[in-house]
Design a protein around this nucleic acid. Structure first.
Length: 436
DNA sequence: TCTGGGGTCCTAGGACCC
DNA sequence: TCTGGGGTCCTAGGACCC
């Protein structure tokens, strides 16, 4: 049966999550910052209209933000992750073929139908998700994933579409594709856009007619795929079962530069313990561990140092204690005194399913599964880091900044939203967690 | 003063094998 | 003077995504 793709995308997702639980944010310019309150990573339409750019460092747009009284939030991934799950669950109930593509996006595959039917389907999905989760979404239909992405962009850009835009096979797309710069196409990043415009290929329409041999040579097979997808030839299938993970990482920029080996160890232990938790959540074990650290590259006048070390484990494991021991040894080898470090991180690779247990001729396996299960159960029930390894430290002076975080409304019993009824209840106490 | 984090895929080139 | 050919695997680096 002929089919069509759709891309569903949550509008200004992190801002929308904040708005669900804080109605006073409606109609206001709002931004959400990356970890460590570093960069702007989500903006409401009002904030976009003020000219605040995606990825802009907070300190650089601070004057603009203060002048227009933009409301600012630190990122609250517990909230966004939970809201994402609710959106995706709702979607799964409505449609059988769903690929969860990112925290705020999903591809669908549906039977091909006339434009009016597809528009109605899209409107129904939008309406249901809004009603069940409070999150506004936009939907684009297209014969390929790349064209569905473009339709989605049109759905957002032009209010006349009312959040749903349909491109069907055989539609004349020349006018549409001429209106899209190559850099706006899914899969064409800054480097490729530069190469393409250098060749006079400026719009999606130009790219759809570009020379295949030149593309293969200069943009590799992925560039050729994008060109074909723009022509309506589907090269990218729907991945409705998630492929196995290849790596799990955890790293953070420090709240203030770290110069001390003991603090560096604490931070690395904290992150490897978190990575090991993620490993166990997904019933995986790691065969390989990489530790990396670096100074602040934005301060070239300061002495610079960056290094990493990769350790192959004798047996694949998800045991935090084993990973901690390898991590501290690696940190001790990597650490050079006299530098102001900005960041440390760990990456777990060579991931295999935890139930496959390869023995080792010379090493007994010291993994303590029961202990780990108990640890995870307690932390799930009572909150992250209720129990932690001593090496992770208690005061954590290096901890990243998160000064403007909203409550974890949906994932912490202590932070449930409070509803008050009766006189004088229109301003709940402490509802305003935002100093901006 | 202050610049995120976590992923994936592709390619070229070297090592190695027969 | 003359010095093969074809294949696989691994890795580092580049590019891209949200």
């Amino acid at each position: 049966m002929p089919a069509i793709f759709a891309l569903l995308d949550c509008n200004n997702f992190y801002v929308s999550c904040e708005r669900v639980f804080n109605p006073r944010l409606a109609g206001q310019p709002v931004v959400v910052l990356s970890n460590n309150d570093g960069c702007v990573i989500a903006r409401s339409n009002e904030a976009k209209a003020l000219g605040i750019r995606m990825g802009e460092p907070y300190f650089k747009c601070r004057p603009l933000i203060d002048r227009h009284r933009v409301l600012v939030f630190s990122s609250n991934y517990a909230l966004y992750g939970d809201m994402s799950q609710r959106v995706m669950e709702t979607l799964h109930r409505l449609e059988p073929l769903v690929e969860v593509y990112s925290i705020d996006e999903a591809f669908l595959r549906l039977p091909l139908a006339c434009a009016a039917t597809l528009r109605r389907t899209g409107a129904d999905i939008r309406h249901t998700i809004r009603r069940h989760t409070g999150i506004p979404v936009s939907i684009g239909f297209g014969p390929t994933k790349t064209l569905a992405k473009i339709a989605n962009r049109l759905a957002k850009k032009d209010p006349a579409h009312d959040g749903v835009c349909v491109i069907r096979p055989g539609d004349d797309l020349e006018a549409v594709l001429r209106g899209i710069a190559v850099g706006e196409i899914w899969g064409i990043g800054g480097r490729s856009a530069q190469k393409l415009t250098g060749q006079g290929i400026r719009t999606a329409h130009d790219l759809s007619r570009a020379d295949e041999r030149w593309l293969k040579k200069n943009l590799s097979i992925t560039g050729v795929r994008t060109m074909l997808e723009l022509r309506g030839v589907a090269c990218l299938p729907l991945a409705d079962t998630p492929p196995p993970r290849h790596s799990i990482a955890c790293s953070r920029t420090f709240g203030a530069p770290v110069r001390d080996l003991a603090e560096m160890r604490e931070a690395a232990v904290t992150y490897v313990a978190r990575a090991a938790e993620k490993l166990r959540e997904q019933s995986l074990q790691a065969g390989c561990l990489t530790i990396h650290l670096n100074t602040n590259r934005f301060q070239p006048d300061q002495p610079q140092y960056a290094n990493s070390r990769t350790v192959t484990l004798p047996c694949p494991t998800a045991a935090t204690a084993i990973l901690i021991a390898k991590t501290t040894a690696a940190i001790d080898a990597l650490f050079r005194p006299g530098y102001a470090y900005q960041k440390v991180g760990v990456i777990l690779t060579d991931l295999t399913p935890a139930h496959i247990r390869q023995g080792h001729l010379f090493h007994a396996r010291p993994d303590a599964d029961n202990l780990l299960h108990a640890l995870d159960r307690i932390n799930r029930r009572w909150g992250q880091d209720t129990l932690q390894y001593a090496g992770a430290g208690l005061l954590k002076p290096w901890h990243h900044k998160r000064n403007m975080k909203s409550p974890s409304y949906t994932t912490s019993w202590l932070e449930l939203p409070v509803a008050l009824a009766g006189h004088g209840a229109d301003r709940p106490p402490e509802a305003d967690t935002n100093p901006a």
